[in-house]
Structures are given as structure tokens and as C-alpha cells.
Amino acid sequence: MVVAGILKLILPFRVVSQGVTAFCNVMMWLWCLSLAFILKVTNRISWDIQGADELSRNSWYLLISNHTSWSDIVALCVVMRNRIPVTKYFLKQQLAWVPFIGIACWALDMPFMRRYSRSYLLKHPEKRGKDIETTRRSCEKFRDHPTTIVNFVEGSRFTEQKRVQSKSLYQNLLPPKSAGIALALNVLGSQFDRILNVTLYYPDNQEKPFLDLLSGQMKRIVIRIETLPVDDSIRGDYLNDKAFKRQFQLWLHDIWQQKDQQLERLKQQFIDKR
């Protein structure tokens, strides 16, 4: 994928770009397949999955999920590899400069998000809306073939310290960031078949799930998938329509509140089993 990404960089033609994307999508699926094999031979994981029965590789999805660890991406890749189209993740701009990973993700057309702080925008008002425009251009590329766009809408991995610092209203989640998925729905809303609301939980490996995964100590991964409809009530001009923006934020808050309650129930469920 790195070599393909370099080819795409030096030959910026549409036909080359489409060919590189198709090739990298196959490589991404093979990577997910290899991850599944590695997990099978290195970990004895008990998979607890609900809600995946009616998914299709020929549909367009917007997948939103809570985010607790780097292992979240591994778990989603392994579970979803044969159930939905190749996943495209919203990534932080800094990852674009990580050797090998950055150019591979760029070759896959993954959207890189550059978030500006409020203080920075006050000093540089010309940057306002630039991150959203980048998202718009990225989403336009996904019209041609079935795609799953993944957004960890908290914007960062959950920790108790971050929860306190962000003054989160939730016990198990950080506040959701709504702009990215609102724009994706506005650009591709007519093509998205469903929204996949995914909840990830590691009942026996909560402290360091990724390290446990690497060291063969992951015991159980719980995944709950809820499908939500895509309708006109969640498609609109998030940037310029204040009423719609408020309505969308309330919609996402309601989903996040239910997810928070679901995580509390899962915690209690597995505590009782012990």
C-alpha cells in the first residue's frame, strides 16, 4: 500500500487514483484477514457479538463507536471484514506524518481531520471551516463504490482523566463531536443505507486492552451493533443552520446517553457473572 500510495502521489490522475484505491481496498481486506488469523493463534478470545446478522457488503454505512483503546480498530476490522464494505476511518491529521502508516491510509482515501482549538481560530479566523471542507472533499470520493465510514466521535480514547477534564455528562464516554458525521450525512446521506451504532467493551481487560491483545491475554470482546435509519431529520446544513445544528447535537446526545447506559448494564452483567 505504501508503494501504491507513492504511485498515486507522483501520478495524480483519476484513473490512477481509482486503481490504487481498488488495490488498497483488497490489501486492507487481506490485512483484516491476517489480523483474524493472528488473534486466533495468539489469543483465546470469546467473541460476544449481537446485531450483525443483517449487514451487507453491498451497502453504504456510517459507523459510529465509542473509543477506549487502539484495540478497537483491530476488533472492528476482524469482526466486520466479511460483513460490511472496507472501512474508512476519520483520522487525526498528525497520523498523516507517521512513516508507512500515513501514506497507506492516504492511499486508502481515509479522511484526515485537522481540528483547531477555539483559541487558535480566534487568532486565525481564516482557518475556520477548513477541517470541515477537508471532510467534504474526502466523502465525495466514496460515492462510486459501497463504503463504510467509521468515526470514533469522541475524538480521543476514553480515560477517566479525560472524562473529568472534558466535564463529560456521561460516566463511560467522552462528549461526542458531531460536525464530522453531520457533514458526512449531508454529503452522502442519500447513499447511506444505515447508521451502525457500535458499542465496544472489554469486560476482562479494561485497564490495558491493547497491551493484553498483543501479549495474548485478551479474554473477551463484547460488541453490540444497533442499526439506525438515515432520514431527512439528520441531514442538513450543520455549518450554517443553527436550528439544525442544535437538533443534530440533541440527536447524538440521546444516542450517547443510551450507549452510556448500555455500558453500565454490560459492566453489571459481567460483574454478576464473576
Rank of each mutant, 00 (worst) to 15 (best):
I64S: 03
S56V: 00
P99Q: 13
M110K: 02
M110Y: 04
L108E: 05
W60R: 03
A104Q: 10
A96T: 10
K88M: 09
Q93Y: 14
M113T: 12
N66A: 06
R115V: 08
V79H: 08
V86C: 10
Y61K: 12
T68G: 11
C77S: 14
I103D: 03
K123S: 15
K123D: 15
T68Q: 13
A96N: 13
S71E: 12
I84T: 07
T87W: 00
Y116G: 08
S117E: 14
Q94V: 07
Q93S: 14
L108T: 02
Q93C: 13
I73H: 02
C77E: 03
S69K: 06
Q94K: 13
Y120S: 15
F90R: 03
A104N: 07
W60C: 08
L63T: 09
D72Y: 00
I103C: 07
D109Y: 05
V79C: 10
R128I: 14
I84A: 08
W70E: 01
N82Q: 14
L121C: 08
S71A: 11
N66P: 06
I84F: 04
K92G: 05
K123R: 15
A104H: 03
D72H: 09
S117V: 11
L63H: 01
P85L: 13
P111E: 05
Y61E: 08
F90E: 04
I84R: 00
P85I: 11
V79Y: 05
R128N: 14
Y120H: 15
R81P: 11
R57Y: 06
P125V: 09
N82W: 11
S69R: 10
K127L: 15
P99V: 12
V86M: 12
H124M: 15
P111D: 08
A75L: 00
A96V: 10
R114C: 13
K88H: 05
A107F: 00
V74D: 05
P111T: 03
L122Q: 15
V86D: 01
R83T: 12
N58V: 02
T68A: 06
I101T: 01
L62I: 09
Y89V: 05
I103Q: 01
E126I: 00
R128V: 14
T87K: 03
R128P: 04
N58H: 09
K88T: 06
L62S: 01
W70Y: 02
M110A: 01
P111M: 07
I84L: 11
M80S: 06
N82P: 09
L95P: 10
A104W: 12
A96C: 13
Y120G: 13
L122I: 14
R83P: 10
H67Q: 01
T87V: 15
L95D: 10
R118Y: 12
W97D: 14
H67D: 08
I73V: 03
L108D: 09
S56R: 01
C105H: 10
D72Q: 09
V86L: 05
M113Q: 06
T68C: 13
V79K: 07
P111C: 09
L62A: 08
